[in-house]
Each structure stands twice: as structure tokens, then as C-alpha cells.
């Protein structure tokens, strides 16, 4: 009897195809984005997230066509991130049919972009994506920093403080990825997730590291996440979204079934 926790399959898209890597390398082809989006919709996905990881600027426009095609067939919320640098990029993605736009590196380089975009389009459609990595040594109190450039560059910013700042600048949601865990299948970084989820008043999506359905349960119950995002466990047919939702519901989590 209340708001359901959300499962969000994530589609990493490059050059018009869905791919998945481990720790942001070793990309493996997983199929056609429109087909995959339709499949997850049929399985009961609560939202879909597309991350455009296209490297070459020539193919940047491809994501707009993909979103247009998905939005004409799939009637659940769509988030698109990757390469968003200006208010105009946000506008183009929203016009193509995205409901929310993820801002990552550009938020670090120019936090005002978050304020400008949320003032223009409403904070409900601005998701700030934070890639965090543990920087505290063993035995020290846990600390995580914000990384950019696919996890290669330490910004020196504390991830929890950064999430609070992004909320104050107008982020309507935080997509929190643990860079240590991404693609590893050993589960979310629950300490990081909980630290951020408890620190902000906006919803937090946990991402990075899901390898089985118990990890999704932990993300909500122990990580206090409002939504959980996963890619590879769904792409290669290990689990369906529906199985994942039932599993979470069996553990007492409010789900849309």
C-alpha cells in the first residue's frame, strides 16, 4: 500500500547497439536497443535507462532516433544519459521522447548546468549520475570520491557531499554507480548507497555490481535505494525483470506486479 520500489534495466548503447562491459571495458554486443526495450517493457520494467557511450561524435545523433522509436512503442518512463553537456542537449533528448535526462561529467565541470536545466525543464527530469569509488584506506572511515571519464579521473569531490550539492542545485534524482562494482556481479556497494540515500531528500537509484536477485533486495533493504538499476543480469537472459520483481516482493518490498 504505497509507492513501489522500481527496477530499471539499463541499456548501454554505442553506435546504435546495446553493449555491456566489465569495469567500463571489454564491451560485448547484447542486441538491438528497440527490441530489448520492448522486451523489458513486456516483462514489467518500471522504467528504462539508456546510456549513450558512443565514442565518435559522428554517431551521436543515433541515440535520438533510437529514443524516438522506443518512445512510440514503449509507454513507461525513459531516462537517457551520456554526453549531455548543455541545456540544448537536454532539450533535444526530451523532444526525442526522453522523460528524464542524466547529467554526469558535465555536472562536475559545470554545476550550473544542473541548475539551468532544472529551471528550464523542471527538476523531475534532471537525473544527476554520480560515479563513485572508495578512496579510504583499510581501517579508515569509509569515504568515496566522484570519478569522471569512465572511472579514470578522480575529481577529489566527496560523493555524499556532491549528491547533497546536486540536490540543492535542482537534481530530481540521483543515479549512483559504484565504479568498484560495475560489471563485477558481486552486488551493490551498500555502504555507499546507504550513505547517499540517507543524505538526500530526492530518490536514489543504486547501480553497479548486480549479479543475482538477492543483490537487488539488498540494494533496497540495506542500501535504502528507491530504485535499482541492472544491465547484464537481464541482457543475457539469466533473469527476467518479472522474476526479479517477484523475488523482491517475496522479501517484503513493495513492487508493481
Amino acid at each position: 500500500m504505497g509507492l513501489a520500489k522500481r527496477i530499471i534495466p539499463c541499456l548501454d548503447v554505442t553506435d546504435g547497439r546495446v553493449v555491456k562491459g566489465v569495469n567500463f571495458v571489454a564491451l560485448r554486443d547484447a542486441g538491438d536497443p528497440v527490441e530489448i526495450a520492448r522486451r523489458y517493457d513486456e516483462q514489467g520494467a518500471d522504467e528504462l535507462t539508456f546510456l549513450d557511450i558512443t565514442a565518435s561524435s559522428d554517431n551521436r545523433g543515433l541515440i535520438l532516433h533510437i529514443i524516438e522509436e522506443v518512445a512510440a512503442q514503449v509507454f513507461i518512463p525513459l531516462t537517457v544519459g551520456g554526453g549531455v553537456r548543455a541545456v540544448d542537449d537536454v532539450r533535444r533528448l526530451l523532444n526525442a521522447g526522453a522523460d528524464k535526462v542524466g547529467i554526469n561529467t558535465a555536472a562536475v565541470l559545470n554545476p550550473q548546468l544542473v541548475a539551468d536545466a532544472s529551471a528550464r525543464f523542471g527538476s523531475q527530469c534532471i537525473v544527476v549520475a554520480i560515479d563513485a569509488k572508495q578512496v579510504s584506506a583499510a581501517g579508515e572511515p569509509l569515504r568515496w570520491n566522484v570519478f569522471t571519464h569512465g572511472g579514470r579521473k578522480d575529481t577529489g569531490l566527496d560523493a555524499v557531499a556532491w549528491a547533497i550539492k546536486m540536490e540543492s542545485m535542482g537534481a530530481g534524482e540521483i543515479l549512483l554507480t559504484s565504479m568498484d562494482r560495475d560489471g563485477t556481479k558481486i552486488g551493490f556497494n551498500l555502504e555507499l548507497t546507504r550513505a547517499v540515500a540517507d543524505a538526500v531528500g530526492v530518490p536514489v537509484i543504486a547501480s553497479g555490481g548486480v549479479g543475482n536477485l538477492d543483490h537487488l533486495v539488498d540494494g533496497v533493504l540495506k542500501g535504502h535505494a528507491d530504485a535499482v538499476l541492472a544491465a547484464s543480469i537481464f541482457h543475457y537472459g539469466e533473469y527476467s525483470v518479472e522474476q526479479a520483481k517477484r523475488h523482491m516482493a517475496q522479501h517484503g518490498i513493495e513492487m508493481r506486479l
Binding site: D46, S123, P203, D226
Partner: peptide
């Protein structure tokens, strides 16, 4: 704590 915006399926 319940988050605002109220975001998701209710």
C-alpha cells in the same frame, strides 16, 4: 523518510 518528488508507481 519518503522522498520528494513522489516518483514512481503508486
Amino acid at each position: 523518510r519518503l522522498k520528494v518528488p513522489h516518483m514512481g508507481w503508486n
